[in-house]
C-alpha cells in the first residue's frame, strides 16, 4: 500500500474525483439551472440576456464533467465500467440532452423566425431539465445501491433506476440547480429583468428547502445506513448542520440583495450535499443491493498503485490549470450582461 502525506493513494483518488464532480455540480449547476428557468422569461430580449449570461462559461463548465469521467476511469476503472454499463440507457439520453442543449444555445439566435427561436428555447429548457434530472436519478441510485453481482457485473435493468427515491433526488437536484442558476442570473441582470429574477430566487429557494427537507427525512427513514458514520463520529454532524445553515443563509442573503455572497453559499450547499452523500457511502463507491461483498469500494475498484501515482501527478498539474482558466474566464466576463453582435 502506498501513501501520500500518510493517506492511502486510493483515498486521495476518492478525494480528487469527489472534488472534480463537486466542481462540476457547482459550475454546470448554475448554467443548467439558468436553462431550466429559461422559458419563464417571456420577452425575447430577456431570453437573450439570460442566455448570454451563461454564454461565455457554459461549455467551460462542462469540461469538469469530462475531467470527472477521465479521473474516474483512471482512478477507479471498475466503477467506470460497472456504472457506465449499468446506466447505459440513461447515459445515452444524457449525451443526447447535452448535444441538444449545446446546439440550442448555438442555433437559437441564428435565425429571426419566431418558431425557430421558440423551438430552440423549448429544446434548451427541456434538455437542461433532463440533464439535471438524470444526474439526480444517478445520485439517488448510487445512494440506494444497484444490483451488482459477482465480478462487478450489473444484473438489474434500466427500469430499476426509476423509483420514488431517485425521482425525489432528481427533483431536489433540479430545484438546487434552479436556485443556483437564479442567483447567478441575479448577478448578471439589471432593471425589470432583475426584478423578475429576484422573484425566481425567492420561489426556487422555497422549492429547494422543501425538497431538501423531504429528501433528508426520507433518507433517514428508508436508508438509515447513510447516517451510521455520523452516529459513530458525532463530529461529522457538523457537515449536515453546515449544509442546513448554508441553505438558510442563501435565503437570508438573497433577501438582503447580496447575491454574490448568496451564490457562494449556493455553491457551498451543492458541495456539502455531495460531500454528505459520499461520506455516508465511504469507503463504498457503489453499493450492491444483492450482497454487500459485491459492492464497489475505494479499495477493490481502484487502479494499481503505479497507475494511481502517475495519474495523481497528472491530476495535480492538470486540475489547477483548469481551475485557473475557469477563474480567468469568470473574471473576464464579470458584471452585467451587454448584448452585442458577438452574442448568442
Amino acid at each position: 500500500m502506498e501513501t501520500f502525506l500518510n493517506i492511502d493513494l486510493r483515498v486521495w483518488w476518492f478525494l480528487v474525483i469527489g472534488a472534480v464532480f463537486t466542481g462540476y455540480a457547482i459550475l454546470d449547476g448554475f448554467d443548467l439551472g439558468a436553462g431550466v428557468l429559461h422559458l419563464f422569461f417571456r420577452k425575447e430580449e430577456s431570453r437573450r440576456i439570460a442566455l448570454n449570461a451563461i454564454g461565455p462559461v457554459w461549455d467551460g463548465n462542462e469540461v469538469w464533467l469530462v475531467i470527472g469521467g477521465g479521473a474516474l476511469f483512471a482512478g477507479f476503472p471498475e466503477v467506470y465500467a460497472t456504472v457506465f454499463s449499468a446506466f447505459y440507457v440513461p447515459f445515452m439520453l444524457f449525451v443526447v440532452a447535452l448535444i441538444f442543449r449545446a446546439i440550442s444555445i448555438e442555433f437559437r439566435s441564428k435565425e429571426p423566425m419566431l418558431w425557430w427561436r421558440l423551438t430552440w428555447d423549448i429544446s434548451y429548457t427541456a434538455s437542461s431539465i433532463l440533464i439535471a434530472g438524470l444526474l439526480g436519478v444517478l445520485l439517488g441510485n448510487l445512494i440506494q445501491g444497484i444490483a451488482i453481482g459477482p465480478g462487478f457485473v450489473f444484473q438489474g435493468n434500466t427500469l430499476d433506476f426509476i423509483n420514488p427515491y431517485s425521482l425525489l433526488t432528481a427533483v431536489t437536484t433540479i430545484a438546487l440547480f434552479s436556485l443556483h442558476g437564479a442567483i447567478y442570473l441575479s448577478m448578471k441582470t439589471e432593471h425589470r429583468l432583475y426584478t423578475r429574477v429576484r422573484l425566481m430566487v425567492k420561489f426556487t429557494s422555497r422549492m429547494f428547502v422543501l425538497t431538501f427537507v423531504t429528501l433528508s427525512l426520507v433518507t433517514l427513514i428508508y436508508i438509515p445506513e447513510m447516517a451510521d458514520k455520523f452516529r459513530d463520529y458525532p463530529v461529522l454532524f457538523g457537515i449536515p448542520a453546515m449544509a442546513m445553515l448554508s441553505v438558510f443563509n442563501i435565503q437570508r442573503l438573497a433577501e438582503k440583495g447580496r447575491y454574490s455572497l448568496a451564490f457562494v453559499f449556493s455553491g457551498l450547499t451543492s458541495a456539502l450535499l455531495l460531500g454528505l452523500a459520499s461520506l455516508g457511502l465511504f469507503p463504498v463507491l457503489v453499493p450492491s443491493t444483492l450482497d454487500p461483498q459485491y459492492s464497489l469500494t475505494v479499495y477493490n475498484a481502484a487502479s494499481s498503485f503505479p497507475s494511481l501515482k502517475i495519474m495523481l501527478t497528472i491530476a495535480a498539474i492538470g486540475v489547477p490549470i483548469v481551475g485557473v482558466y475557469t477563474t480567468f474566464v469568470f473574471w473576464t466576463f464579470r458584471g452585467k450582461v451587454k448584448i452585442d453582435e458577438q452574442s448568442y
Binding site: 425575447e44 430580449e45 437573450r48 439566435s109 429571426p112 423566425m113 419566431l114 418558431w115 427561436r117 448584448i339 452585442d340 453582435e341 452574442s343
Partner: peptide
C-alpha cells in the same frame, strides 16, 4: 462590424417581429 449598437438593435427587432 464596426457599427455594433445598430447591429444588435437590428437583431433584437428582427427577433421580436411577429411573423
Amino acid at each position: 462590424t464596426e457599427d455594433i449598437p445598430e447591429y444588435s438593435k437590428r437583431y433584437a427587432e428582427s427577433g421580436n417581429s411577429p411573423n
